[in-house]
């Protein structure tokens, strides 16, 4: 088992809480981009993370490539396939994370399929993540009924285990999920897979406002958000916005342009989103 959180500095959950407190005093919502680890290669991912940090991202989700991601649409699925073909492994993920968490100030959470966590062993996966400086996990295929072991390991390690609520989650269940969530609560905007969409779903704003009355944990909204206009509308009611496929789409084009040009374009895009999160 890993060392207790006090021995290794403050709990990552409280680090995350400080991020939201600071944002709150600044009158801003968080902007949390999602990046696939290892697409097109680990060096680029590291450069992308530094670029996102400089562009003002509040925290980042580092997508861990998995061969069978059933919650993901074609953009992230293809990104995972490219990363795996380029030789992605979990060893390389943790090495990348070690380097990244030393260079950037934004907290980084791993978005990983439970298939990978289970295979490595829950305690080992959590210990490796903690040693690499990661802040916690989003596990998109782990419902609350199956999560006791990972939850216990994360609590002991002081890492966040972010839970998801979706439009199909009944109200009572959403409250139960919110109670278990640590770090923040991931509010999925639509019933469907990841992927940019042009409009915000009807009822999203109401749903976030309802959740707000049920939990004190910060609420971040993700799935389908790609434009500053969408980000601005969500930032008005939620504690943050997660942008995934739209960022990953930039990665798909990374191979076709000089790295500096690609990073410059990405930084501009994310900078606009960050600006839109000011209330």
């Amino acid at each position: 088992m890993s060392a207790s959180s006090t021995a290794a500095g403050p709990s990552k959950v409280s680090v995350l809480a400080d991020v939201f407190t600071t944002l709150h005093t600044q009158g801003r919502a968080a902007l949390a981009p999602f990046v696939t680890a290892g697409d097109p290669d680990m060096e680029t991912t590291l450069a992308v993370l530094e670029s996102l940090d400089r562009a003002g991202a509040s925290l980042c989700e580092l997508g861990v490539p998995y061969s069978d991601p059933i919650a993901d649409g074609p953009v992230i699925q293809s990104s995972y396939t490219r990363a795996l073909a380029a030789g992605f492994t979990l060893e390389r993920l943790f090495e990348l994370s070690r380097q990244a968490t030393q260079r950037v100030k934004m907290p980084i959470l791993a978005m990983a399929s439970y298939s990978l966590i289970y295979r490595r062993g829950i305690d080992r996966f959590v210990a490796d993540a903690k040693a690499a400086g990661l802040t916690g996990f989003v596990v998109p295929d782990l419902p609350i009924e199956e999560s006791d072991q990972l939850d216990a390991a994360c609590r002991q390690a002081g890492l966040a285990l972010v839970r998801l609520v979706t439009p199909t989650t009944p109200p009572e269940r959403a409250e139960a999920i919110a109670r278990k969530s640590t770090g923040f609560l991931y509010c999925v905007s639509v019933a469907g897979v990841t992927g940019a969409r042009t409009d915000l779903p009807a009822g999203l704003i109401d749903r976030v406002q309802w959740l707000r009355t049920k939990t004190d944990v910060p609420i971040l909204v993700g799935f389908g958000i790609s434009s500053p206009e969408q980000a601005r509308a969500v930032a008005a009611v939620a504690d943050g916005v997660i942008v995934g496929s739209a960022v990953v789409r930039h990665l798909a084009e990374a191979a076709n342009q000089p790295r500096e040009a690609f990073l410059h374009g990405l930084k501009g895009y994310v900078g606009d989103l960050v600006a839109a999160t000011a209330r």
Binding site: I70, A71, E145, L164, T168, V188
Partner: peptide, 20 residues
């Protein structure tokens, strides 16, 4: 009741599918 056959089985799905 959790769909366990010994240690196997269970329900490891995105939350979107839980209600269905």
């Amino acid at each position: 009741t959790l769909g366990r056959f010994g240690r196997f089985g269970g329900r490891y799905v995105p939350e979107t599918l839980s209600a269905a």
